[in-house]
């Protein structure tokens, strides 16, 4: 099925320090920086929000999101669906997410290939799954159920990971390919996460990209990371608090060449700079996508 959102889009994650920018300063005073200068329109094609921050009905966050939505398309990005939970999906969570989806009418709804919850325990972290037939069957059943509950396609994002399991029966890209084939879900490809995991698990990111079903890639995330030495081994940590580094831009060039209509965004979650700095970074993404389209004569 072709994407209903044809053509490249460039956006940003909507974060609290930038609420005032997106709403022309019309927000509660604690969200307005002292040196704030209002602009009529922020030059982005969409914004993405963390779903859970807006899933409580009523109140200030939901009001802010509704008003941003009046001017910008919105993608909903979840962190707590927990499609890999051995204890099953949370029906209350899905109902709250469905209500948010009905309210916001987002362009996309996504979450991660991971587990975050076991029974009542919520880790608030994206925990790794073994890539086994058992885990694949479970994740497929949960993605099916989530798509039914939401009445629409979901996108699943590749996570950064720091351990892998001895019992793995397939690679992450094989797992994602099977997931797409069996459920019809789309993919949110985080090229920083590919770079981070490739380093941590010594695989070739080019092999990863070569195997991805790019027809299913609807969104691309760009972010930065941090290197840390852990017990004598250098690991990359997905901190989302740094500018996008060169190796990640190179993966992006390949990804946007193969998914020229994917919606691309900078995902900065910590150490959040002024909006102008992120907009400048987004211009680099536009340039790379434009160049990729010219090189491959893809209508952009």
């Amino acid at each position: 099925m072709p994407s209903p959102h044809f053509g490249p889009h460039f956006g940003l994650g909507l974060r609290k320090p930038h609420y005032a920018d997106f709403l022309g300063g019309d927000v509660a005073v604690d969200f307005v920086p002292v040196d704030f200068v209002p602009v009529d329109f922020v030059p982005v094609d969409f914004v993405e929000v963390i779903s859970e921050n807006f899933m409580v009905p009523g109140g200030r966050p939901r009001d802010i999101l509704r008003r941003v939505r009046a001017d910008y398309p919105v993608a909903l990005h979840g962190v707590s669906l927990s499609v890999g939970s051995a204890s099953g999906l949370d029906a209350d969570y899905l109902r709250a997410l469905r209500a948010l989806v009905d309210d916001v009418e987002p362009a996309f709804v996504s979450d991660h290939l991971c587990w975050t919850r076991l029974g009542a325990f919520q880790s608030h972290d994206l925990l790794p799954l073994p890539y086994t037939a058992e885990a694949l069957a479970l994740v497929c059943a949960h993605v099916d159920a989530a798509q039914m509950a939401l009445g629409r396609q979901m996108l699943i994002e590749n996570p950064s990971s720091y351990v892998s399991f001895a019992e793995d029966e397939m690679t992450e890209w094989e797992f994602l390919g099977e997931l797409v084939a069996r459920t019809g879900c789309g993919l949110l490809l985080d090229v920083n996460n590919i770079h981070v995991s490739a380093h941590n698990h010594s695989f070739d990111p080019a092999a990863y990209l070569a195997a991805i079903p790019f027809d299913a890639v609807r969104q691309i995330h760009l972010a930065g990371h941090t290197a840390r030495t852990i017990e004598g081994r250098e690991m990359l940590i997905d901190t989302h608090d740094q500018p996008v580094p060169d190796p990640v831009w190179r993966l992006f060039a390949e990804a946007i060449t193969r998914a020229p209509h994917a919606w691309t965004m900078i995902e900065r979650d910590d150490n959040i700079p002024e909006l102008a700095e992120l907009l400048a970074e987004l211009d680099i993404a536009r340039d790379i996508a434009h160049q990729a389209a010219a090189d491959h004569q893809v209508p952009a």
Partner: peptide, 27 residues
């Protein structure tokens, strides 16, 4: 496996999860 991972997060008990990993240093 997930119960063992939870024990690691909550109680710093890696006895269950570490032996199932290719390299436990990332825990």
């Amino acid at each position: 496996s997930q119960a063992a991972f939870q024990a690691w997060l909550q109680q710093a008990d890696d006895a269950g999860i570490a032996p199932t990993l290719a390299d436990p240093r990332g825990l």
